[in-house]
Design a protein around this nucleic acid. Structure first.
Lengths: 232, 232
DNA sequence: GTCTATAAACAGATAGAC
DNA sequence: GTCTATCTGTTTATAGAC
């Protein structure tokens, strides 16, 4: 990934269009989100985004500058909303169960909001989660991006887990978080793999099935690792 | 992804070069493997592969044809070896414990060979696992590719889990497999994310730490899901 | 704000010399 | 087998008309 040339002064990049009819800026972001999430950054051309959004390529550069800045705008747009939802859920749970937090309760507060958003009628969140999964799995520049946007809420999770299990080793919690996020992101990105593997018995779009299993799965795994606290 | 034009007759694509000095065919595959695994299919140009391998682009087309065929060749090359290693480990475990298989034992037979190969001095396996993780996370065409190469060994895992837990619901096992593979692939692709998140306390290259935790984590999770057998 | 037109660079792929 | 040279189409990005 090349260097992202910072916005020069004077260019109207990032400004919202006036409130007149269809918001083309949002249309561009939605189109880019869907395409990037399915084909990756390099697998999508600016022209495809323009065609999908029903605008010209020049307009995309007018609003967002370079292609990479468009991608960053897509990623950033829902990150704040998502972080608010998660922090709210975790705060609410910690407030409701100040002295009897369970591991599974903490996990549910951390993952639940994502599953809920994915089950909304709004299909854009599914695209966004696919995109986050893709970034999370990008060794090249994904780590830096995840770090910038999502580390605070993850540290909040680690703290809550530590509160629920005071004897837990911090290193174990970090590793368990990685296992957890791998499962969560794959489930949320709905790759269709499980449909084919199970010959239709399971459908990757079945978020109800995920909800019914993922929290318990992760909670049991974490507790077992903490219980053994390996020294390696 | 465009149509893959089938090999016309007469072209020497896929043939091995004669045994003379450095094997350029393998050099190309190794270069492509490393680059594709880090930047994805569209993020790598044939010219980059050629430069990395120290050959000309024309030679790549001579050996492999189109870019997509090169990618498929990279993916297929180690798939067979990997499947053999896994099937061997699972067969060996089932033979050693015919009547007392544990869930964790089955899991270890399934994941262990990958961790072992990753800990080898040969760095190419790490690249390959990164590549598989990337394909596994590609909604577009990844499912089909995974299906073609890896479904048999996964079904073998499902069967072994069912043997270890006769009362288990098949649907639960498929879902748990998805959770498991998400954790496993993320851990094996060594994205560096946990290094940054934990501020150096954990290193994603520390396969010993993975080995000490992942098996127990997955086994406990699966057993808990099976124990509850949700109906959703 | 939005589009037309186009510049400038780069991609995948092949023909043909050696 | 391997490389030089090149064709052809596409890509990002911008300048400027409206």
């Amino acid at each position: 990934m090349a260097k992202a040339n910072g916005n020069q002064a004077g260019t109207p990049r990032g400004r919202r269009p006036k409130g007149q009819g269809p918001d083309l800026r949002e249309a561009i972001l939605n189109a880019a989100e869907g395409l990037f999430s399915r084909h990756g950054f390099y697998g999508v051309t600016v022209r495809q985004v323009a065609a999908e959004a029903g605008v010209d390529t020049a307009l995309i550069h007018y609003y967002f500058g370079a292609k990479r800045e468009l991608f960053d705008s897509v990623f950033a747009r829902r990150a704040e909303i998502l972080n608010e939802a998660r922090l709210g859920a975790m705060r609410a749970y910690q407030a409701a169960q100040p002295d009897s937090m369970t591991v599974e309760g903490v996990i549910e507060a951390f993952i639940g909001p994502l599953v809920d958003l994915s089950m909304t009628d709004d299909p854009h969140w599914k695209n966004y989660f696919r995109l986050v999964a893709l970034v999370n799995n990008t060794p090249d520049w994904g780590g830096e991006t995840m770090h910038r946007y999502f580390d605070p809420v993850v540290h909040r999770l680690i703290d809550a887990l530590k509160a629920a299990m005071p004897d837990a080793e911090i290193r174990d919690l970090y590793w368990c978080y990685q296992f957890l996020t791998g499962s969560m992101m794959l489930a949320l990105s709905e790759t269709g793999r499980i449909d084919q593997l199970s010959d239709g018995l399971c459908r990757s779009s079945d978020m109800q099935a995920v909800r019914a299993r993922l929290f318990a799965y992760c909670a049991a795994g974490i507790q077992e690792v903490v219980r053994r606290h390996p020294e390696a």
